[in-house]
């Protein structure tokens, strides 16, 4: 044994009490393992774009929808510093490895490309439905779109809208979720949906997933 004492760190103890307590309660609230794959479009903005190598290369600036507003075709990006402006490059959906609640994953930086590709599609009408009024085909005003609900998998489909009710007499209008129907018409002014969709509304996202499924089943049966 050497004569020099190694100080406090010298003991071969199995436990170091200070190592255990550190992370407790810090951000561990987390999501349940089977959490909903649904997410709100506004929440995707500012999400970091991270490579599988663990580097954050950008953050999402805007979501680009296809012309029918049915799915995401890509993202415009900005730099990760607080005051960074728009980036010269964008991220087409084909380059997305996974769209998660905490990050947009890409394999590596090759997934980014010149913005022309994605932005050309931005200009398409109907992609941006925020603030649009929603009317049923029966002529009833359902409310105003305040957010878009996206289901992320191999594609990122718009499955519904978060609606602020039109007859908001209360001071705190509660929003609700309305499934998206294939048979809609969209203009810059309004979105017309089948009245049936209003029977499948939900108060929260977890409940909404089942409603979306039920609504789609119903529409399929109706089509037969």
């Amino acid at each position: 044994m050497s004569g020099e004492r190694a100080g406090a760190a010298g003991q071969p103890g199995r436990e170091r009490p200070e190592a255990g307590g550190r992370g407790e309660g810090s951000g561990a609230a987390g999501r349940a393992p089977g959490a909903s794959a649904l997410m709100l479009a506004t929440g995707i903005a500012k999400r970091p774009v991270v490579t599988l190598g663990g580097e954050a290369v950008a953050q999402v600036r805007d979501i680009v929808f296809d012309s029918g507003g049915g799915h995401i075709v890509g993202f415009t990006l900005s730099g990760r510093r607080r005051l960074s402006g728009p980036m010269k490059r964008s991220l087409p959906w084909e380059g997305v490895y996974a769209l998660g609640h905490d990050a947009v994953m890409i394999e590596n930086e090759d997934a980014l490309e010149d913005p022309g590709e994605v932005v050309e599609r931005t200009e398409a009408k109907g992609g941006d439905v925020l603030e649009s009024r929603v009317l049923t085909d029966g002529g009833k005003d359902v409310g105003k779109i305040v957010d878009v609900v996206v289901q992320a998998g191999t594609t990122a489909d718009v499955v519904g809208y978060e609606i602020e009710p039109g007859d908001a007499r209360g001071r705190h209008p509660r929003t609700a979720f309305l499934p998206r129907a294939e048979t809609i018409s969209v203009s810059g002014q309004a979105l017309v949906i089948p009245a049936l969709a209003t029977e499948f509304m939900a108060d929260d996202l977890p409940g909404f997933e089942a409603q979306v499924r039920a609504f789609r089943d119903r529409m399929r049966k109706g089509a037969d």
């Binding site: 992370g23 951000g27 987390g30 959490a35 663990g54 490895y97 996974a98 905490d102 990050a103 994953m105």
Partner: peptide, 17 residues
């Protein structure tokens, strides 16, 4: 202290040890 991300983009805690 590094955050842990799954390949699906879901955060699952930070590294303690």
């Amino acid at each position: 202290d590094k955050p842990v991300l799954t390949e699906r983009g879901e955060e699952t805690g930070t590294v303690d040890d």
